[in-house]
């Protein structure tokens, strides 16, 4: 089994790759921009779990390069994970549309571009699993991060459609919806420890969802219920809240 991890330098992606190498014996291909980090990550996986692991250059924002990137892979993956993302700066995005575009470029267009190429391959082969990191921020827009949130909302909707399209071809699409995560992306934010997942916990949840062929996984699990409540607040009331 071969697993391709796009955004392989993120802590969550790296931990997930380790879980799949450890428990599924998966061969790992890590893809991202910082090759020095990526090669260290690949070597670590190889030494820990005795599985082949390699590093390849991939730039999510450079959508023109995606087709060539995928065609040039010596071996095609059975699992593809989308773990790249850009949090951006909400205030900056309000004032400067270029920032908003950048957020969308990575989180939505970058993801959709490479996923179309992978989906076509999986569809033809009649096998494969796509795992993509979305966010609870995409479940309901809030003033503090609605640009990021709407890019993730677009991704969630996209994944739902892709799942629908690929289901008859036996291809699984797993939408991962994390709440707070203790990663580089959230460095410096004050997150409530009880609600915050470590990358290792997110990786465990993803592996479990893969084994159980779950279409949507919230991590930590209770975020499903937190978001259920948040989504059921009427807009009339929600517009005046400070959540």
């Amino acid at each position: 089994m071969i697993m391709l991890v796009l955004g392989g330098n993120s802590e969550t992606a790296f931990e997930t790759a380790k879980q799949f190498a450890k428990h599924q014996g998966a061969e790992i291909i890590l893809a991202s921009r910082n090759m020095e980090q990526l090669e260290k990550n690949a070597k670590d996986i190889e030494l820990r779990y005795n599985v082949p692991a390699s590093a390849v250059f991939f730039d999510a924002d450079d959508t023109d390069s995606h087709r060539e990137f995928y065609t040039s892979l010596a071996k095609k993956p059975d699992i593809a994970m989308i773990a790249f993302g850009r949090l951006g700066d909400q205030e900056k995005a309000q004032a400067d549309f270029a920032e908003a575009e950048k957020i969308f470029k990575t989180n939505f267009f970058g993801a959709a571009s490479i996923l179309e190429i992978i989906a076509a391959d999986f569809e033809e082969r009649g096998q494969g699993t796509i795992i993509a990191m979305s966010s609870v921020a995409g479940e309901r827009g809030r003033k503090s991060n609605y640009i990021y949130g709407s890019s993730k909302a677009a991704l969630t909707a996209y994944l739902s459609g892709l799942r629908n399209r690929l289901a008859p071809r036996n291809v699984d699409v797993i939408t991962v919806i994390p709440g707070f995560m203790n990663t580089k992306m959230t460095d410096g934010m004050e997150l409530p420890p009880a609600l915050t997942a470590e990358p290792e916990q997110v990786a465990d949840d993803i592996l479990r969802a893969y084994k159980k062929r779950k279409p949507v996984v919230y991590t930590k699990w209770f975020w499903r219920w937190i978001m259920f409540i948040i989504k059921s607040i009427p807009e009339k009331i929600f517009k005046n809240t400070d959540i």
């Binding site: 070597k43 670590d44 030494l47 820990r48």
Partner: peptide, 9 residues
Amino acid sequence: KRFNRILDF
């Protein structure tokens, strides 16, 4: 603790 890669053995 996240600076924990194995570099060689």
